[in-house]
Design a protein around this nucleic acid. Structure first.
Lengths: 117, 117
DNA sequence: TCTATATACCTTGTATTGCAAGGTATATTG
DNA sequence: CAATATACCTTGCAATACAAGGTATATAGA
């Protein structure tokens, strides 16, 4: 009857990761929203995508926290809002990566946990 | 002034992972809520903990979905609700682990992404 | 010219969830 | 007898992802 459906769970898993990945992309170079969306999808083969209804509010949240800063510019005849990583965003990104590594290891330990006590 | 605070972000990251880890623990043997909470905290050195306000509603959600099944028992003079993993939960867990591996790799790719194009 | 598509940004409403903070009840220890 | 640990539970709040809608411009093809 009802198939296994982990779609909403996948959303949960992506939660937070998107944020860290956006900061990581901006560390490399400034980018605009649409570009971030496409790049993320491409690098991760679709595993980490961001819907626009998620992306734009998220960018504003990151800006309000002082992690990134956006500026409107015209390039290639197109009006785009380019975001750059701020120092506070860099420090935050580094803290996030630290925690991410800890979480990865922690989950590995739980998943590998076998009956060997 | 305001320090970098990624506490709420950490919560985001834990989202979903807790669910997968609980199913993984129950794959090994049946456990009761309080035991799951303590075990998770211990295996992961506190990185993945579950507040009780999170745990018990979560266990009920997992049960409603047919992933696990709980039974009240008296052991060591204590009334405990033991949960066991159901077949549907096992299939789900395996799908989760598959996706988790993909996500881990995807994030690694984004984080390692350097100016080498 | 007209249309379709891609680019690029945005908003509203809904559903889901983690957690703080409260609770109950029993068993154990000092 | 008090404090602590065990073991479960509920309510209300805040945060967020997404669907589904929107606007506006540029480009390519008929």
């Amino acid at each position: 009857m009802d198939e296994v459906n982990i779609e909403s769970w996948r959303t949960e898993i992506r939660r937070g990761l998107i944020e860290m990945c956006i900061l990581a992309l901006l560390r490399r170079k400034e980018m605009y929203g649409y570009e971030i969306s496409k790049t993320l999808r491409q690098i991760t083969n679709g595993t980490l995508y961001v819907e626009e209804g998620t992306l734009y509010p998220l960018l504003r949240r990151l800006e309000n926290k002082g992690y990134i800063k956006g500026d409107w510019r015209i390039r290639e005849g197109k009006a785009r809002k380019y975001y750059e990583l701020r120092p506070k965003g860099l420090v935050t990104l580094e803290a996030m990566i630290d925690f991410w590594v800890r979480v990865k290891d922690a989950v590995s330990r739980v998943l590998e946990e076998v009956d060997d006590e």
